[in-house]
Amino acid sequence: MSETLLEVKDLRVAYGRIEALHGVSFSVNQGEIVTLIGANGAGKTTTLTSIARLPPPEAPKVASGDILYRGESILGVPPHDVVSKLNVALVPEGRHIFGNLTVEENLTLAAYPRRKAPASEAEAAFKTVYDLFPRLAERRRQRSEQLSGGEQQMLAVGRALMSNCQFIMLDEPSMGLSPLLMQLVFKTLRQLNEEQGMTILLVEQNANMALRLAHRGYVLDTGEIIAEGSADELMDDPEVKKAYLGG
């Protein structure tokens, strides 16, 4: 069994008086792809933004429970240190790219956590991203708001890879993408995992695609984990099938 990278313990988070997560616990091991599936309002995004330590209103204060990364609590870590010191990258819901900057400028900006490292590292990261997404290399001088939705999503993933991350969290990367583009993005994620040993936490509504990619999965429903297991087990689980996979 490989080392546990991330452990979320009995996490409770509330927006004002409304509790969004009622004690969520799960873990992600080194080198794994884990998916968190669930319907709208299940608390998937809140879970991710809480791990990324985003300030309110994106993620409210943790009411109780703990988030351990490499065995240490990260509740006191500010969001910029989560990226630059813990090397955890987030691809947020809705992409959040800088629309008035070009593709290359977005990627350059994303190399900001590496500013103290030698420039060759950032160049290597550029090469990795452009190799994974040749489309971005073609459009490097284009303003990113002019990209199609799929290309923007590639840019959002590419941007996360520009930081020196070993663990990447993605919030619904398939949102608004055609099936073909979705497959491309998912294929890239698998490639990252297999070739670079990248640990991935994937939040998805598209349970079918997510479970096919992941090693393990958790099903989140209205702030609680209702099922967990290997991806194959979850695919065969009649409850999951009925709720998310359409029979």
Binding site: A52, L54, P55, E58, P78, P79, H80, D81, V83, S84, A89, L90, P92, H96, I97, F98, G99, N100, L109, A110, Y112, P113, R159, A160, S163
Partner: peptide
């Protein structure tokens, strides 16, 4: 300027916004 454009993006680019 990054904060002006998109504060969430600035945070996840490891910019210490505060």
């Amino acid at each position: 300027v990054a904060i002006n454009q998109d504060e969430v993006a600035a945070e996840i680019m490891s910019i210490n916004t505060n």
